[in-house]
Amino acid sequence: MLTYLLAFILFAVGLYSVINKRNLIKIIMGIIIMEHAVNAFLILIGYRLSGEAPILEEGMAISEFVNTAMDPLPQALVITSIVISLGVVALMVAIAVRLYQHYGTFDITEIRKLRG
């Protein structure tokens, strides 16, 4: 249970950064930390004590493999999620760069003031 709690604390750090920071780059970093925390939590759920990676080798018995391998389903979900997060980071950085070009700052309170 302590291990799940650590992943939750990592998520909370990211949430703190998103809600409480004024710098646009810090907000993007908070979102990245939250993505990391969720990925770590999904992998922790699929962990099996003294298990093996879900990759078959030659001469391995399938019945034994089913009882010792990690859960492959969360891993398959997380591997797509990581690559999507990279695309989303590129999109967010593009938005931030355009905002900087328009307003000359990354401060979101300034951006809010100079509306229009």
């Binding site: 695309g87 590129a90 950085v93």
Partner: peptide, 20 residues
């Protein structure tokens, strides 16, 4: 697909910065 799209995004960001 992944390689092409990521390289395109990076190249656009680099070109944008160079123009700036």
């Amino acid at each position: 697909k992944v390689g092409g799209s990521l390289f395109v995004v990076f190249a656009y960001l680099a070109l944008f910065r160079a123009i700036e």
